[in-house]
Design a protein around this nucleic acid. Structure first.
Length: 884
RNA sequence: GGGAUCUUAGCUCAGUUGGUUUAGAGCGCUGCCUUGACAGGGCAGAGGUCAUGGGUUCGAAUCCCUUAGAUCCCA
């Protein structure tokens, strides 16, 4: 049957099913060295996007390479329940069906949420299979499944009992859309243009006014003081005075506090303790009243007294108008200020006073900081270490409660006893009841006397346990003692605080051990204008369509080939095309070799023998380079090294050398060796392009059961002979010059010509001795030469002279030569060489260089000088003979 | 406002502790090649005073400082 001339990537999935059927991705503890990765769990309701593709391609490359190296590779997949995001989606879905969340019970809501999860959840895991991700699917975990939930509750109870979790009343970040508190890490700040409003407050009992500047005029309804700096001479006379808040006509004190910035605005500041963290602190110092003027959706509450039920941004416009009318508004200036927004809902965050659960992070941070600073946990690239240190050294308590339903409900039960609320934290309500009974010495208590905390935990409170919980680490030591710590975490630097740092903390807190040895930070995927890929910009290609169009291998190639660790990936469809073209090249090389007829009677040609030896050595060199690059996680560079080796060395040079004449058979030795080399090359490439390598693996040879590329043996380098590599490089240089000479004269590339070499001891030794047999044959074959002839005559008629590898050659040429042009060419080369030599001479004539530089460096310079002078001699001679 | 990183070919990036020919790769570009594994191909070529100005050194893309620009983190 005819093999098509183009590689068809559409049957990639056939191989995925094949691997699954053979259970190659499943891992159980055994005697081998483990190699473990836990996936950064994507949102359970998410769909595959470009960022996932990059991230998971990287993980798959690492895990597949480890598997080929004979390690027990285990890649644990799973999903994250993504509390806020998923709840928001479910709420929206219900709203579309005409159901309001506030109209249904918690249990009803959760039923809808689980139904939703069952229907749409985990799509992304199926999509990862298309990409080729070789996860151990039997281990698939979910942050809200039974095992993981048990871990979360135990972690909460542990920390509570260790005094590291507590409840506190503070100013928090409120997301008015999701109607929940957020941690500091979930708030993103953006600079936005806005206005600074100057508003005057009448000083009580006088006709005098005090003017303040604010960006948030609507909050004056909650003002309980006005502050100035104690040393500000402008306001010294206001000591003990009171001012009247406009609109509400509340009389509030003028206070003196050093927090006030005298340079900003008018140097006087309105104080709204309920709606600004700094104001709250000031309020505590001065014992101020706290008036919360907002509802939980950031509309104005009864307490505001005005605009009740209207949204804060609408109120801002209204109040500005009203203040203008009443004469309180002095002026408006344009002003850029930074606005905090919810990472998930993008709603503008509202500071709000509220009681929440916190984790005291200081003690947890200490070992986590040390581990990274001392490279116990190593970051790739290293430059993230500074950011990490800065955060951990300035760590603040972690707000872990969320006013949501979708998540792990906080295992705290409350009991009202004589108007006092008692708290019992336990794994189950039964345990809590026992505690309550003991505590109150009341044996008649029942479960219905207790009521559980209404809130759930921050999603990250389950994610930080992930490397432990996926192995059921709190409850069964079998897996965790084998797989933990994992080898590497592959993730984006944007969640270094939200996730990476906290996992390290949890690792030391519970396992007394780091969760992973290395962290590989991928960059963001951006478009070629450096814009972040996003749905709203519409600049993100559909990941699955990309796979359909170019094959997973092509996409993997494209994602990786321009993605240094930590650096952003500027996605360009050209790169994916390049990957697809590479697949096609591999395919056609396979077609070439497969198409050869083998003739046992033909001898092993000397040039083929040399070519095989050369490619073996070169491959060993490449293997060493790859190992080195993998160690540093320079994966895109590793891929480029392989790409160049395969395309240039293997296909362009090696195959051209050994290729039998059209229609002729090949000797069996060459064939066998070529297949062997081809196989090794496929294994080397497999981690990057798993599908096509498996496909070709089965094409080039009959395979026994279990002889599959995915589990083949990764080749090891046995060292290489640099002299041999150097010799071939010289031959390549000569060939290139021959081609260039033909090219410049418009001669046929394949017309057989004689090449003359001026006779020197070195060229004689190089091409004509039997030290490395076959060099001359290779030269003849790929440069299309009738013969290579040594000559004493340095000026043969009708030849094109050129220099290569420090020797002079003359290529047969049967037409008139443009002598002027030749002279110009040689003159140009001569000028370059003279400049080169002059530079070195200058260096060498500098006594301080010769005296101070290491001997080896000076010797090298001398050798460079000698070589340069040699070339000049040859060029000058050529020039002379042309001119006569 | 505080801090970090970066600036090398048209584009995206390598360039290890300062010294391997006067800086490399991929893409793009230019010319030639088409019955032969592959035009999703082959061969060859052109392109850079390494952002700027100083300094250290026998020697700087590499170390230090200045200036300009870009990105990011924190507040």
């Amino acid at each position: 049957m005819q093999i098509p001339t183009r590689y068809d990537a559409s049957n990639e999935q056939k191989w995925y099913e094949y691997w699954m059927k053979k259970n190659y991705f499943h891992s159980e503890p055994d005697d081998r060295e483990p190699y473990t990765i836990v996936i950064p769990p994507p949102n359970v309701t998410g769909v595959l996007h470009m960022g996932h593709m990059l991230n998971n391609t990287v993980q798959d490359i690492l895990i597949r390479k480890a598997r080929l190296e004979g390690k027990n590779a285990c890649w644990v997949p799973g999903t994250d329940h993504a509390s806020i995001a998923t709840e928001a989606k479910v709420v929206r879905m219900l709203r579309e069906e005409g159901i309001k969340k506030s109209d249904i019970s918690r249990d009803e809501f959760l039923k809808y949420a689980w139904d939703w999860k069952e229907e749409y959840g985990g799509i992304i895991l199926k999509q990862l299979r298309k990409l080729g991700a070789s996860c151990d699917w039997e281990r698939t975990a979910f942050t809200l499944d039974e095992v993981r939930s048990k871990h979360v509750l135990k972690a909460f109870v542990d920390l509570y009992n260790r005094g590291k979790i507590y409840k506190g009343l503070r100013i928090i970040n409120w997301d008015p859309e999701a109607k929940t508190v957020l941690s500091n890490e979930e708030v993103l700040y953006e600079d936005e243009p806005g206005y600074l409003y100057y508003i005057r407050y009448q000083i009580e009992g006088t006709e005098e006014y005090l003017t303040i500047a604010t960006t948030r005029p609507e909050t004056i309804l909650g003002d309980t003081a006005v502050a100035v700096h104690p040393k500000d001479e402008r306001y010294g006379h206001l000591k003990g005075k009171k001012v009247i808040v406009p609109m509400v006509n509340r009389v509030v004190p003028v206070i003196f506090d050093r927090y006030v910035d005298r340079e900003f605005g008018t140097g006087s500041l309105k104080i709204t303790p309920a709606h600004d963290p700094n104001d709250y602190e000031i309020g505590l110092r001065h014992n101020l009243e706290v008036i919360d003027i907002f509802n939980e959706d950031a509309t104005l509450s009864e307490a505001a007294g005005f605009y009740v039920g209207k949204d804060r941004f609408e109120v801002r416009k209204l109040i500005v108008e009203d203040l203008k009318t009443s004469g309180h508004l002095i002026k408006i200036e344009e002003y850029n200020h930074s606005v905090g927004k919810s990472e998930r809902t993008h709603a503008v965050v509202e500071p709000r006073l509220s009681e929440q659960w916190y984790v005291d992070m200081e003690a947890l941070a200490e070992p986590a900081l040390k581990a990274v600073m001392e490279d116990e946990v190593e970051f790739f690239p290293k430059n993230q270490k500074n950011t990490y240190r800065h955060w951990l050294e300035n760590i603040r308590p972690w707000t872990i409660s969320r006013q949501l339903w979708w998540g792990h409900r906080i295992p705290a039960w409350y009991l009202e006893v004589d108007g006092e609320t008692k708290t019992y934290v336990a794994l189950t309500v039964e345990e809590a009841l026992e505690m309550a009974k003991k505590d109150t010495a009341n044996d008649n208590l029942t479960i219905s006397d207790l009521h559980q905390d209404e809130d759930v935990l921050d999603t990250w409170f389950s994610s930080w346990l992930w490397p432990i919980s996926v192995f059921n680490g709190f409850f069964d030591k079998k897996d965790i003692s084998y797989y933990y710590p994992t080898n590497v975490l592959v993730t984006g630097w944007d969640i270094i605080f939200l996730w990476v740092a906290r996992m390290i903390m949890a690792g030391y807190e519970w396992e007394n051990e780091k969760p992973f040895k290395h962290v590989y930070f991928t960059g963001m995927v951006r478009d070629n204008l450096r814009r972040k890929m996003s749905k709203s910009l519409g600049n993100s290609p559909d990941a699955l369509k990309l796979i359909d169009d170019y094959g997973a291998d092509g996409v993997r190639f494209g994602m990786l080939s321009s993605s240094p660790a930590g650096g952003d990936l500027l996605f360009d469809i050209k790169l994916v095309e390049q990957g697809r073209n590479f697949s096609n090249k591999l395919w056609n090389a396979m077609r070439l070799v497969k198409g050869w007829e083998i003739d046992e009677k033909i001898d092993y040609p000397v040039e083929n023998n040399l070519a095989v030896k050369w490619l073996e050595n070169r491959m060993n060199q490449v293997i060493e380079e790859l190992d080195n690059l993998f160690e540093k996680y320079k994966l895109s560079e590793a891929l480029m090294v392989l790409y160049n080796f395969i395309w240039n060395d293997f296909f362009s040079w090696y195959l051209e050398i050994i290729k039998p004449a059209y229609g002729s058979p090949v000797d069996s030795e060459t064939y066998t060796k070529t297949i062997e080399l081809f196989e090794k090359m496929l294994t080397l490439l497999h981690p990057f392009m798993p599908f096509i390598t498996e496909e070709i693996w089965h094409y080039i040879k009959e395979r026994k059961e279990g002889d599959d590329c995915v589990v083949s043996k990764y080749p090891e380098s046995k060292g290489y002979d640099s002299n041999l590599l150097e010799a071939i490089n010289k031959v390549k240089a000569i060939v290139t010059k021959v081609r260039e000479s033909r090219n410049s004269k418009g001669m046929k590339p394949k017309e057989l010509l004689v090449l003359y070499a001026e006779k020197t001891a070195s060229i004689e030794k190089f091409l004509f001795s039997e030290k490395i047999p076959g060099l001359k044959h290779i030269l003849k074959k790929i440069a299309f030469l009738k013969d290579v002839v040594l000559t004493d005559n340095s000026d043969i008629e009708n030849t094109i002279p050129f220099m290569a590898a420090n020797e002079k050659f003359m290529l047969e040429f049967n037409l008139e030569i443009d002598i002027e042009e030749e002279i110009k060419k040689i003159q140009k080369e001569l000028d370059y060489q003279k400049g080169f030599v002059a530079g070195i001479e200058k260096k060498l004539s500098n006594e301080r260089f010769v005296n101070n530089a290491p001997e080896a460096i000076v010797d090298k310079e001398r050798k460079k000088l000698a070589d340069g002078n040699e070339r000049i001699k040859i060029l000058e001679k050529s020039l002379l003979s042309l001119k006569k």
